[in-house]
Write a protein that binds this DNA or RNA. Sequence first.
DNA 1: TCAGATATATCAGAACTCGATATATACATC
DNA 2: GATGTATATATCGAGTTCTGATATATCTGA
Lengths: 122, 122
Amino acid sequence: MLNLKQDHSTLVVLSVLADGPSYGYAITKAIAAKSDGHFKLTASGMYPLLTKLEKQGLVTTSWEEVKAEGADPDASGRKRKWYTLSPKGRRQLDKHIEAHKQMQHLLDNFLAPTATATSTNT
Amino acid sequence: MLNLKQDHSTLVVLSVLADGPSYGYAITKAIAAKSDGHFKLTASGMYPLLTKLEKQGLVTTSWEEVKAEGADPDASGRKRKWYTLSPKGRRQLDKHIEAHKQMQHLLDNFLAPTATATSTNT
DNA sequence: TCAGATATATCAGAACTCGATATATACATC
DNA sequence: GATGTATATATCGAGTTCTGATATATCTGA
């Protein structure tokens, strides 16, 4: 079980929201499912991050009541805070993906089997 | 210019040392060169990390004097602290590489082109 | 002599991490 | 109706990490 750091969390959360609006609890479940149970983003990591994304204008939010089946329509039940990826957020996701790919590419130079500097022609 | 975080720093530093012993200043230069000038690991990130690696037994160290050309052999000149990858460090490097590859693999699930959330229907 | 490169190292304010805690509803089972 | 588990959002705080600034000292070339 790998705890995600902010960089990866941001990438992953924006990616999940690119599939459509969602809310905190569902996002944590989606991340666990999509990573085959390997990624873990707990509430204490998720909510501060979502608040940050909102402040940066990458997501927009709205509250919605969760009506229980056959519940009194006037009763106030549990609430969900929905997060929707904004156009700015989508552009940011693209940037994050690009940056991630560049990072991977650059790291490849360090992951190669320790070459004994043989022939390296250009 | 990307500042490296500890996870990546560790991977990259151990990787550089896998090519042979080196010292702090040279490692920062090697990282910059190997990453085509994109990775930056400053002194304030490098030395605490090297100390940590030493404490963990991943590297062994030794001081060596840098003799100036034609200098008095008895004069005490500038010193270098050399870092050598230990067998434990090499195993740790392998583990880091493996973990990194798994992370990449898992992240792929989130980087795939999002179905068509940019819905075209009106 | 002066500037810039080499070389190691710490400091401190800021940011981040993450288990624990708080609050509340929903639902199945006993 | 009590009990436990899942759903749902959110903050706290001790510990760790990050990073520009600072300190110290040597070497090299103009």
